[in-house]
């Protein structure tokens, strides 16, 4: 009989210190996340040095909690997996070095994992993958369309040429004096507003699956400025609704086209912005008449966590990938 795989995941790429233990890549045994969001709020964004300071203070506490919750023996653990990149280098370094120490102390295999592979594999806790699979990854740092023909193989068919969608949300939120992080606030305002301002949609050249949000961002800023100069008062709800409509339309259309071109059996949404209600609703509608299975993870698996790293790491482990003791943090790691 095939033995069960128990994989440890460690994630410290941004402002969450997280450790999880996952069984066979699909079952969460424990999943502990220590968020620093309160500490960064006063700065209006994540400060890398502060994030790194928190990670080094939290890491063994979070490890201990994850192992206590899992109540698992070390003999059962097959490998230690960790986010190798992309992310904030100083933050990544805490996870990577802690993972190396853990793997060395217990003499277990060590495997570096791509953060986005993690976001994609968070969906596998919900449903088994069907290939070809198309993943729309949207978060504070990423906007990407990723094609998977089999487990563990990723082909980026489209990505942002400037700002990530989440970044655009944060910047517009700041313009509207909304607290950090701005995404959820815009989403909430948008649901009470009307799409009465026509903001541009960046389709880019024909057939491209790339994204661009900097033009939209500038357009929002200019519109607010011009209205102010004319003494007009725009409703924040309407700005939010109109901005969100532009983002959601581009994301939804491009995802739909790519799904058709690559004959995707499954489309999954991954990353923090996958929590956005407007986006979820638009995608559900767009794919409702197709036989493509659309998978949107529950909110708690959209944000950064370590279970997703362990899930992606399980495939890497089963495919025989191993990292050496010289594993380093790689803030610009490519998904491949």
């Amino acid at each position: 009989m095939k033995k069960d795989n128990y994989i440890v995941g460690i994630e410290t790429s941004c402002d969450e210190t997280a450790v999880a233990i996952v069984k066979n890549g699909r079952e969460i045994i424990s999943n502990v996340v220590a968020s620093q969001i309160e500490s960064h709020k006063r700065f209006g964004g994540v400060v890398p040095e502060i994030a790194s300071r928190h990670h080094v203070e939290q890491i063994t506490i979070v490890l201990e909690e994850a192992f206590e919750q899992a109540a698992i023996e070390w003999e059962a653990i097959d490998a230690i997996t960790v986010t190798e990149g992309p992310g904030l280098v100083g933050a990544l370094l805490i996870g990577v070095n802690s993972a190396k120490a853990l793997a060395f102390a217990k003499q277990k295999p060590l495997i570096g994992v791509h953060h986005i592979a993690g976001h994609i594999y968070a969906n596998r806790f919900e449903q088994e993958f069907q290939f070809p699979l198309l993943a729309l990854v949207v978060s504070g740092g990423h906007t990407e369309l990723v094609l998977m023909k089999e487990h563990g193989h990723f082909e980026v068919i489209g990505e942002t040429r400037d700002d990530a969608a989440g970044e655009a949300y944060d910047k517009v939120a700041r313009m509207l004096n909304l607290p950090y992080p701005g995404g959820p606030h815009i989403d909430r305002l948008a649901s009470n507003g009307e799409e009465n301002i026509k903001f541009p949609r960046a389709w880019l050249e024909e057939g491209s699956y790339d994204f661009s949000f900097s033009g939209l961002k500038s357009s929002v800023i200019n519109t607010i400025h011009n209205a102010k100069q004319r003494g007009e008062q725009l409703k924040n709800e309407d700005i939010a609704a109109s901005f969100q409509a532009s983002v959601v339309e581009v994301l939804t259309e491009k995802t739909f086209k790519a799904a058709q071109q690559y004959h995707a059996k499954q489309v999954i949404v991954a990353g923090g912005v996958a929590a956005n209600q407007g986006l979820r609703a638009a995608l559900q509608e767009k794919f409702s008449d197709t036989d493509v299975s659309l998978l949107i993870p529950p909110l708690k698996l959209c944000t950064d966590n370590a279970a997703m790293i362990a899930a992606a790491g399980t495939i890497a482990y089963q495919q025989g990938k191993r990292s050496g003791w010289d594993l380093n943090a790689n803030p610009a790691l490519l998904l491949e």
Binding site: V56, T60, I94, K106
Partner: peptide
């Protein structure tokens, strides 16, 4: 931090 993350985790694991 590289030293501390390593040392703390070694100590905890062992």
């Amino acid at each position: 931090r590289i030293g501390l993350a390593t040392a703390k985790t070694l100590a905890w694991a062992l």
